[in-house]
């Protein structure tokens, strides 16, 4: 006699294959300093940092419903904190990066208290005002070069690693580590109780409120965590550039427009979306960037077309058709044979 029982499972065949493939790709990427050229490594680092920004923006907008067009506030803040800690306190960049993250999360607390008073689209522009305030404020600090910015002193860079090759490998690994950290944090967050609450809020604010979910606290928590990780990413971005200025640090195009483009193309509200989006974005950039402003025009048109015709993005559209999920987040009921 056979009876069927049911169990709840999150993993699927696709997710197990993806996990194995993911580990293989990660191993390959860790080994990049031994097989990739200097230019390739720079490009890969940049991709990792954009991936990290995109995942974080996606967490904010796609899961917590906080559509921000001002995340450049934290990118620039993190970058400036790295420079300030290194220049004024002589702290090694490796230590200064997590410190920049902590400071980013701390500054996000009063910011959130203020702009959480704005709703929806007005919240979005409010975040932009904050980024402008940050930009104008840092432009006033003459010790950090004022409006024209400053460079990271050579001595500090030399202290990081013995040789140039080693230094480049280190910044590469840091960028890779940042992306892995962000993915891990978001994955863990979404699988936790809080993740469940966030998904409930995303699906229906009203209903989740009636289940006793504290919407404000959940959103606040996500905003602060995201700010901290964004600031860390920002610190890494400017560690790679070795130079910072208010206009570069708080650029809405570089740190928000491109990031939104990546998430929208890839698929908002999915973990896989930003990964696909980053690959598509860099493919487009590497092939079209010679076109200059025309390239940006094309990006804008593509983003609008995707938003209107396939609002779930590339991954969302694929997922809707196939049910494919590489990061096992949703629970499914499995039939067990006994």
């Amino acid at each position: 006699m056979t009876t069927t029982s049911y169990s709840i499972s999150r993993s699927s065949k696709a997710s197990r294959i993806a996990a194995v493939a993911g580990i293989a790709v990660l191993a390959l990427l860790i080994a990049a300093p031994w097989w990739a050229g200097r230019a390739d490594m720079r490009l890969l680092s940049e991709m990792f940092l954009y991936l990290s920004l995109a995942c974080l923006w996606n967490l904010l907008a796609g899961y917590a419903g906080l559509v921000s067009v001002g995340q450049q506030a934290f990118v620039g803040f993190g970058g400036y904190m790295l420079f300030a800690l290194a220049i004024f306190a002589g702290i090694s960049p490796l230590v200064a990066i997590p410190m920049a993250g902590v400071l980013g999360a701390l500054i996000a607390v009063p910011v959130a208290l203020l702009i959480f008073r704005l709703r929806g689209a007005y919240f979005a522009i409010g975040t932009w005002v904050i980024a402008e305030v940050f930009r104008l404020s840092f432009a006033q600090i003459s010790a950090l070069g004022g409006g024209s910015g400053t460079s990271l002193p050579v001595a500090i860079i030399r202290d990081m690693a013995s040789s140039r090759a080693m230094r480049e490998a280190t910044t590469y690994w840091l960028a890779l580590g940042m992306a892995v950290l962000v993915l891990a944090v978001i994955y863990a967050l979404l699988r936790s109780r809080r993740g469940l609450a966030l998904t409930a809020i995303r699906d229906s604010e009203l209903a989740s409120q009636s289940f006793g979910i504290d919407i404000w606290r959940n959103k606040f928590f996500v905003y602060v965590i995201t700010a901290g990780l964004t600031a860390m990413t920002g610190a890494l971005i400017f560690l790679q550039k070795l130079r910072i200025s208010p206009d570069a640090a708080f650029s809405v195009n570089d740190w928000t427009a491109f990031v939104i483009f990546i998430v929208v193309i890839g698929g908002i509200g999915t973990l896989e979306g930003p990964i696909i989006g980053v690959i598509v974005f860099f493919l487009l950039r590497e092939t079209l960037s010679d076109l200059g402003t025309t390239y940006l025009l094309i990006l804008g048109v593509v983003a609008i077309a995707v938003m209107l015709k396939a609002p779930n993005g590339l991954w969302g559209t694929l997922k809707d058709r196939t049910g494919l999920e590489l990061f096992p987040l949703s629970r499914r009921v499995m039939k067990n044979k006994q």
Partner: peptide
């Protein structure tokens, strides 16, 4: 997002 794209 569409008006953001329009802005770009």
């Amino acid at each position: 997002l569409v008006t953001f794209g329009l802005s770009v």
